[in-house]
Design a protein around this nucleic acid. Structure first.
Lengths: 251, 251
DNA sequence: TCCTTAATGGTCAGGTTGACTATAAAGGTG
DNA sequence: CACCTTTATAGTCAACCTGACCATTAAGGA
């Protein structure tokens, strides 16, 4: 698997200015489980940071884009089919390029976020050791490898913000879900509690956010009145947005 | 200017998987001039795309981050001092990594956006030919080099969205400005007209957006009642946001 | 049967927005 | 100079949205 065209130094720059970089992708994959935000982590099997937890990811191959690499790594790491992963539409977060972020060499990493419905317990299929869902809130995740702690924090802030003005929250839910489940996504990611009737009103009056499923309702856990089921609608943006309480953006 | 540490292939991957990439930055620099959105472009002096217009940018050097490269290139291209450029805080847009985006070799480009107050006519100082402000709306800018047309479109969409929920618009204005000038920033970027009293009320009741300047007002162009002057406030976010009309996000 | 839980259907006051009218203060024009 | 145009500023009013509530329904558990 060598590159189709060998890389050449561009001729309109001083060759001394050109350095080969390695380019990787890193994935901040979130899910909501038991009312807590979880993130997919792998345990590193090699130095540096052997034994530390890290975000799943890997090198971009010669003939693929960073987005393709992200989808490939996500499929390898979770054991999900490529089709399923493509439907998750991993979204580019930002690129990390500090010269010293990897002690081995100059590595530039394009980070992605992805949102999974719920606990398809990962089979560690990729390069590293097992992949595991880890609670994001507790101190359970110590110091991550490289600058992955920063990437993870940036990813969490981004998805929190996107919940406000997009319909992204449905990506955390299974194909059919109750409004209670959808509300719990917001409450979990934002770390707040929302008024149930108000949340319901907002969601149902936002055109295209959700659409009702015909047929009998299901009971969530047995307790309480059975809830109606909804599917994700066709809308992608939320106008006006669903602002989080206090008007205080996560810093 | 050779790298401090020669790049090495990471030992936990098949060497065939590792390809050296070139990493560049590209800058989408906007300003508002005569009520029109302008973007900073340079004319390419070499193949490929010789004679085409392109975004300013260049290679990331061995010991600098992409952000540092963006600030350096912006200073070179505009002739502004590094201090001034640092104050502009170029913001990362996204990374473009299509394998065929540069016909010469494998180049991954980290794109940035920057907002300038007004027409400091650039002196073409950098590598390429002259840098020029070009109107963004007209067909004046034909096909840009590489995938720069797409980068430019992404950048415009991003700043349009950020005007809604941040105080970014003041970055388009000189240190002291009138509310009419601030409003024209919104109208120009969004391509709409806004009600003047309503815009005024919204800005003045948003804490920290702008703060009044003591002293006599100035007249903008001579015509009309003199307007009061304001400075950018300390706030960075806008809660609640200033949504654009029609509730229709730029697609 | 009663209690608890969760879903759903309402009301109501306050805040924000969009549409609109009115007034003030400048320059330009006859 | 009177008068018009232009721009800034002040204010009104209804529609809409939101947050804080209260009430009812329908399930399971004790």
């Amino acid at each position: 698997m060598s590159p189709d065209r060998p890389p050449r130094v561009p001729d309109d720059y001083d060759p001394a200015d050109f350095v080969p970089f390695a380019v990787t992708v890193d994935l901040a994959v979130f899910t909501v489980r038991d009312g807590h935000l979880h993130v997919l982590l792998v345990e590193r099997g090699e130095e540096p940071y052997r034994g530390h937890w890290a975000l799943p990811g890997g090198f971009v191959r010669p003939r693929e884009s960073a987005g393709q690499a992200a989808r490939r790594e996500l499929a390898e790491e979770t054991g999900l089919s490529p089709d399923t992963v493509a439907g998750l539409r991993p979204e580019q977060l930002r690129t990390y390029s500090d010269p010293d972020r990897d002690p081995r060499m100059r590595v530039v990493s394009v980070a992605y976020t992805a949102l999974l419905p719920d606990l398809p317990e990962p089979r560690g299929g990729g390069d590293a050791a097992q992949a595991r869902w880890t609670r994001h809130d507790t101190g359970e995740l110590g110091h991550l490898a490289f600058d992955h702690g920063r990437i993870l924090a940036d990813g969490r802030r981004r998805i929190g913000a996107k919940l406000e003005y997009t319909c992204l929250a449905t990506a955390f839910c299974p194909p059919e879900f109750t409004l209670g489940e959808l509300q719990q996504v917001y409450e979990t990611v934002w770390g707040v509690t929302l008024d149930r009737p108000n949340f319901r009103r907002k969601v149902l009056t936002s055109p295209g956010f959700v659409e009702p499923v015909e047929g009998p309702p299901r009971r969530t856990g047995g307790r309480g009145k059975p809830a109606a089921l909804y599917r994700a609608g066709t809308a992608t943006a939320l106008h006006p947005p669903l602002l989080r309480p206090e008007g205080r953006p996560t810093p």
